[in-house]
Design a protein around this nucleic acid. Structure first.
Length: 730
DNA sequence: AGCACGCCGACT
DNA sequence: GTCGGCGTGCTC
């Protein structure tokens, strides 16, 4: 009605950055559509916000409202669907209202930048290019391959060419030979998905085919695709995506942080003529913004991204794939602590489309849902190419000579595999040279000034580093406690392992993967590149190695030290240990030769190993589910952790004590704590936690929701947060 | 989350 | 005398 009176002022509800429980109200002369960005005054500055509603809540006096400074978008940037998922997230994860909305936008758009209309360079073949036989270019194989693909695709965008692994130099060469030419096209509207292929599909085995048949539905159906490593899950995804594109719908693929390599993108881009965009942390803000905008305009048929891509607007979304669904990187560990897998499930439900969660080692939550029939359960129990599962055995460290924790047995097996020209992969989940710097006279250990933790010795940089807060110092030469000199590096990290291996096998390249040797995407790619070379090699590294990389020529996997995972107090420590062990083992023997896995442990008789030695992750997981059931832990109950930190330990503890007594008085939830966090002092702050448990999700939420209004988030030098469905109890 | 205001110690 | 340390409080 108000729009009939052009002079009258409208109210708009705007989600703005800040610690607000809901949107703020502003005045506007015109009706601003929901989903548009606006600039609004906030305090004495101007911020970018998103219009999420029009109605003004009753409790706000309209006379106090300020006007919107500027409308930034003509048309909504975020659809109602995305807005409602964002709203669900902020309610469910109990974080500031606006964070989820802002999370849905790439950084540049969050800052108010105008989204770029995408000008695309399209590459087309000339008449000669269409006619020529690519075999004539056999002296330049890259050009030949590019020509071959262009002949099959008719035309490709520069982005596609890059994603396929070609450089502009390759293209230039074809251009100078007058085989192809470029043309600039301004892309405005949608591009209809076709599902037309560049590369033919692989033939599915009967299990893959059965899985595919069930995936191609048109209503909300969640599936667990449980397939052993090497069983061909990706091929099933690709063919399910093809079916989706053929219906004119688009697909969203989420992969773990570290899994989104050029190889992964290529694997998807090589299959389809349809355009694909990737969204990951290796891209610049500008690139991300462009990719996001193209996706939101419907110019990409397939969107492949990491955690934060879960909220990318995609018109006519028809399928969601979550690869390696158990991976911890799907849970955000700071600010808005969401689990992207669960948000994706919500999104699929809302869009009424199928979603497939794939893993060789499903999370206990997902496995449980499949076992009770809530999710469809698709099984790929065999390796696709008929390769055998590796032989797994434990090495009893009590009966072994060892050098820096490398047993004689593992050393001999490594030697054998290398002698046969194969690669060996040694997994050691501890970076640095040694986990401690100590005095063998009096037992003094270098610890962090700011944390309740030892310093890790790094030899390359001759520094002792705290892995929890980043504090660095030069290693002391003599003991500050007894004066003894010299001090020693005790224990083994990847740096020392690398040194030891280089010493033992002087002629064999040792390639290290950890946060230090592969700190950036580029360095990581460089290390991967080295593993492609012919001849024997040793790959040594941390859990970076467990995440979906195919090391075709690895035939031996050695697990340097599994025992830390056996005794950690954390909720998911055992689950992770089993997943890691299964995943790392899966890195071996995918080719022709049967792989071998050796697990070094001081506790070989621990029954937890028994099923894992036979590749029976399922039995292992069912046992853990049974333990969870007895303890009322997820997925049989619901958990929230409230963490507090303060420079003053008593303040942090007292705040939680007060919350605990309030929560206990409700009599609807179980409360454990306050207890000191696993790392009780970190970066100079004392940390405590409170574990809240309930049988019903609703009871848990009802209990914790009021805390935000009772306790300001920053009060008298204490800050606190709630973590719903925490990844770890620490 | 920012950002200003305001009250205390250590400097030209 | 002030510069700036960061504790406190506010933002439709």
């Amino acid at each position: 009605l108000t729009s009939l009176f052009p002079d009258s002022l409208q109210t708009v509800q705007v989600a703005v950055p800040g610690p607000f429980q809901g949107p703020l109200s502003y005045l506007s002369k015109t009706v601003i559509p929901i989903g548009c960005r606006v600039e609004v005054p906030l305090g004495n500055r101007t911020v970018v916000g998103i219009v999420v509603d029009h109605e003004n809540p009753d409790d706000i006096d309209p006379k106090k409202l300020k006007p919107v400074s500027r409308q930034l978008d003509e048309r909504p940037l975020l659809s109602i669907d995305i807005l409602s998922i964002a709203q669900w997230m902020s309610r469910y994860y109990l974080h500031e209202f606006s964070s989820a909305y802002l999370l849905a936008l790439p950084a540049l758009l969050r800052k108010g930048e105008v989204p770029a209309a995408s000008v695309e360079t399209r590459v087309k073949l000339t008449l000669e290019g269409k006619a020529i036989d690519p075999a004539q270019l056999k002296r330049s194989p890259k050009q030949q391959a590019l020509l071959d693909i262009l002949q099959r695709a008719d035309q490709l965008s520069m982005e596609q060419i890059r994603q396929l692994g070609f450089t502009s130099a390759h293209l230039k060469s074809l251009e100078t030979k007058r085989l192809c030419e470029r043309e600039e096209v301004e892309q405005l509207g949608e591009i209809k998905p076709t599902g037309d292929k560049l590369e033919t599909s692989l033939t599915l085995n009967s299990e893959q085919q059965a899985a595919l048949d069930r995936l191609t539905q048109d209503i909300f159906t969640p599936f667990l695709l449980e397939g052993v490593t090497g069983s061909g899950k990706t091929e099933v995804y690709l063919q399910a995506i093809e079916a989706c594109l053929r219906k004119g719908k688009r697909a969203l693929v989420l992969v773990p942080e570290i899994g989104l390599t050029p190889q992964t993108i290529q694997r998807f881009q090589r299959r389809f003529k349809d355009p694909l965009v990737a969204l990951h942390s290796g891209m610049t803000d500008k690139q991300r913004q462009q990719a996001w905008y193209q996706a939101s305009l419907g110019q990409a048929s397939v969107v492949i991204g990491t955690r934060s891509a879960v909220l990318t607007p995609i018109p006519d979304l028809g399928l969601i794939v979550i690869d390696e669904e158990h991976d911890v990187s799907f849970k955000q560990q700071d600010t808005l602590r969401y689990q992207a897998r669960d948000v994706a499930l919500k999104r699929a439900q809302q869009a009424n489309i199928p979603i497939v969660l794939g893993s060789a080692t499903p999370s206990l939550e997902t496995l449980h849902n499949a076992l009770i029939g809530r999710f469809g359960h698709l099984l790929l129990p065999n390796r696709a190419a008929g390769a055998q599962m590796p032989l797994v055995e434990t090495v009893d460290m009590r009966k072994q000579q060892n050098r820096n924790g490398l047993s004689e047995r593992l050393l001999l097996r490594t030697h054998d595999h290398l002698r046969d020209g194969n690669q060996a992969l040694l997994f050691l989940n501890r970076r640095g040279f040694a986990p401690s710097w100590f005095c063998d006279q009096c037992g003094w250990i270098a610890d962090c000034v700011y944390c309740d933790a030892n310093l890790t010795h790094h030899r390359h940089s001759n520094t002792n580093i705290c892995h929890h807060c980043g504090h660095r110092e030069k290693p002391a030469h003599s003991c500050p406690s007894c004066g003894h000199s010299p001090l020693q590096a005790m224990g083994t990290g990847t740096e020392r392992a690398e040194e030891l291996l280089a010493d033992l096998f002087p002629d064999i390249p040792v390639i290290r993967f950890d946060r230090d040797a592969a700190s950036t995407r580029k360095k990581f790619e460089a290390q991967l590149e080295k593993t492609q070379a012919d001849g024997p090699a040793i790959i040594v590294g941390t859990q970076m190695l467990a995440k979906g990389h195919h090391f075709e020529r690895v035939t031996l996997v050695g697990i340097w030290d599994i025992d830390t995972g056996l005794f950690s107090a954390d909720l998911r420590a055992k689950e992770r240990m089993g997943q890691l062990l299964t995943q790392v083992s899966g890195r071996s023997g995918r080719g022709e030769r049967r792989g071998e896995v050796l697990i070094q442990t001081y506790y070989p008789e621990n029954p937890i190993f028994t099923p894992l030695l036979n590749h029976d992750y399922r039995t292992f997981a069912v046992k853990l589910l049974d333990e969870r059931k007895k303890a009322g832990l997820p997925p049989f109950g619901f958990v929230a952790v409230i963490r507090s930190d303060s420079a003053f330990a008593d303040r942090a503890e007292n705040l939680l004590r007060s919350m605990a007594s309030y929560l206990l008085s409700l009599k609807t939830v179980r409360v454990l704590g306050p207890i000191p966090a696993l790392l009780s002092r970190r970066a100079g702050k004392n940390r405590y936690m409170l574990i809240v448990q309930a049988e019903k999700r609703s009871a848990l939420h009802e209990a914790v929701v009021p805390l935000h209004s009772h306790y300001p988030r920053q009060e008298k030098q204490v800050s606190w947060h709630i973590d719903i469905d925490p990844a770890e109890l620490s």
